[in-house]
Nucleic acid binder design. Sequence first.
DNA 1: TTGGAACAG
DNA 2: AATTCTGTTCCAA
Length: 657
Amino acid sequence: MFVPFFREFQQFQPQQWEQPQPQPQLLVPQAQPQSLQPQSRQAFRDSRNRLACHDNPHLSQQSVSGPIHDFGLESQSTFHGGDCAHSESMAVAPVRDDRRIVLHLDYDCFYASVFEVEQPALKSQPLAVQQKQIVVTCNYEARRRGLHKLQLIKDAKRICPEVVIVLGEDLTKFRDASKEIYHFIRSFIWGGRVERLGFDELSLDVTEMIDYNVELLNRNDMTTSFFHLNRNDPTVGFTYDATRYHGCTYPPSEGESPTLASSDPSTLEMRLLVGSHLMAYLRSQLEYEKGFTATGGISTSKLLAKLVGSVHKPNQQTTLVPPYEFTSDGKESNVIQFIDAHEIRKIPGIGSRLAQKLRTRVAEKNAGEEEMTVRDVRLCPGISPPLLEKTLGGPGAAKGIGQRIWGIIHGVDNTEVIEGRDLPTQISIEDTYGRGRLDSPESVRRELTVLAKSLLRRMRTDLLDKGDGNEEQPRWLAHPRTLRLSTRPRNAPETDGVRTYNANRISRSAPLPSLVFNLDESIDSLAERIVQDHVMGMFRRLHAEKSGWDLGLMNIAVTNMVESAGDQKQSSGRDIGKMFQQQESILRQWTVHESDDHLARKPEPEVLEESDSGWQDGDEDEDHDAPLLSIECNLCGAPIPHFAQQAHELYHASAEV
DNA sequence: TTGGAACAG
DNA sequence: AATTCTGTTCCAA
C-alpha cells in the first residue's frame, strides 16, 4: 500500500479532479468590455496576449479600436491607430496566442554526450566526434580549449593535441539514444504533446499540465507547492517553491529576491513560473535517469521557447518572463525586446535564402548592410505582410510566407506542437567519397551495395514490429513504396555571385520492389539484388554511361511510407501500456511506500479514503516487501528514497543558478 | 508521384 | 564558405 507523500491534500476537492476542462477553441480575445467577461474567462483574458504593440515611430502606442486591416491573419487584429493620414497603409501587429505553455529542450552537445554516457571517463577529457574530416560536435571541455562544431580535424588537433577523437559516422547509437530520451520525456507529458526536432531537441506543449497545477495552487502556502504529474494519482509529483522561478529568466531578475510580482495564480507569469519548475524536474530526471544534461527554454510558443532556451547554455534553463505585451504603465514588451536583438538569420524558420532576401530588401531603405537584426526588419519603413510576401515569395516559396515572417519578427508563432510520429516518413543512408573512389561502374555498384545493406538493416530495425517477445513472426509496420537514389557532384558549382547554396543534389526514384520485405532472405543477398536490378538502373538514369561523372556523395532512401492497416490500435495500445509502465517505474521514487517508521511520522490523510479507489490499482504489489530507506530533504522537507537522493539534490542544485 | 529547394540539427 | 549524415515540409511539373 502507498502512503502518499502529499502536502496539499486539503486542496483536493472531488470536483477538481475533472479539471481542467477542455479549453475552448478561442484563438482571439474578443473585444468585450471587461465587466461583461465572465469570471471564469478572466484567466484566459489575463494570460492571453492582446495586441503586440511596437515602437514603430509611425505608430502611436495608444490602442484605438477601428478598421481592421486583415492581411490574412486568421485571428482578428486590433487596429493600432495614430496618425490618421498614414493609418490606411499601416500594418497591424499580429496577435500572439499566449494560452499555451511550451518547453523547449536541447540536449547539450548530444553526440559527445552519448559517448560520455557510454564511457564516463571521457567526461573529464576534451572530446570531439569526427565525421570524415570534420569535428561535428565536441564536449564543453574541448570548447574551453578552443574547439568548436564543424571544425577541421586538422585544426582541432593543432589547437588541442590532447583531444580525444571518436568516430561518429554511424548514427545508430545517436538515433537510439535520441529515441530513448524522447520516449522517456514523453512519458511525463499529458497528451503526448512532444515534438522532435532533429536528434537532440524537443518541444513540449505542457499547457494542460500547467493549467491543472496552477488551479490547484494553495495561495496560502506557495513555498511548498506540489506539482502533480498524474491526474489519477495525487501522490505522483514533486514539491517546488511557487514564489520564484526555477533557473534563469530573461530579462535577468534584478533584485535580491526574484519573487513574483503578483501571486495571482491565473496570470501568465504564474503559468510560466510553474512551467519553469516542470522544466527543472524534467531536466533533473533526464540527467539522473539517463545521464544527459539539457538546456531548457520556457515560453508560450515553440519559437520563443527555443530562442530563450539558448540564452544560457549548457545545462541551464531560461524563462522568458512577462510582460509579453506593452502595458499601460509604459513597460516594454519583453518579447519584442528579446527577439528584436537577434540577427534575422538566427531566427528559426529564416534560413540563408530568406535572410538574404530580407537583407537586400531592407538594406534599400537602411544604410546598415551586413548586420541585420529583427528590429531593423520590423522597423523598416513600409514593411507589412503583403510587402514581405512580395519580397520573399516567388517561384517555389511557401504560400503565406509574408504573413508567417511578419508574425515571427513580432515574436508570434502560432504553430502547434506536433505529436511525434512512431514511424519516420523516410529512411536514408548516405556516404561521401574522396577522389577516385567512384570511378568505375563496378566501384559505384560496390558502394551502393554497402549503402543498400545499411538501408535494409535500418528498415528492419525501424519498420518491423517484433512481437511481444513471443515466437511470432515480426510484421512490417509500414511499407515504403518508393526507392530513391541521390548523388551530388564533388565540385560544388561555385557559380557567380550570391546564388550558390548547396542545392546540388539530384535524384531519381522508382517503385520499391516488394521483395525487400521478404524476411527469409538475407540482407546481403537482398542488397545485391536490388542494387543490380533497380538501383544501377536509376544511377544510369542520373548519369549517362560515358561522361566521367565525378561524384562526392551517394544517398539511397526509401520514402512514401504506407502504414500497415489494422494494427493501429494494437500498436498504440501497447505503446501506452509501455509508457505507463515506464512512467510508473520512474515516478515510483517519489512515492513513499508504507513503513512503520514512516507511518509514525506522517499519518495517512483522511481525505485519502474518499478517493482511494480512484487512483489506485494493484500494480504496485511487487514493491510491498521493499524495505523503505528514505530520508527527508532538509531543503524542502520531501521524503526521498535513498536511491532518488541524487536526483533530488540535482533538482535543488540547479535552482541556485 | 517525382524531383528539387529550403529549412532544421 | 562549406564541410557530415541525416530528417521534414513545401512547391511545381
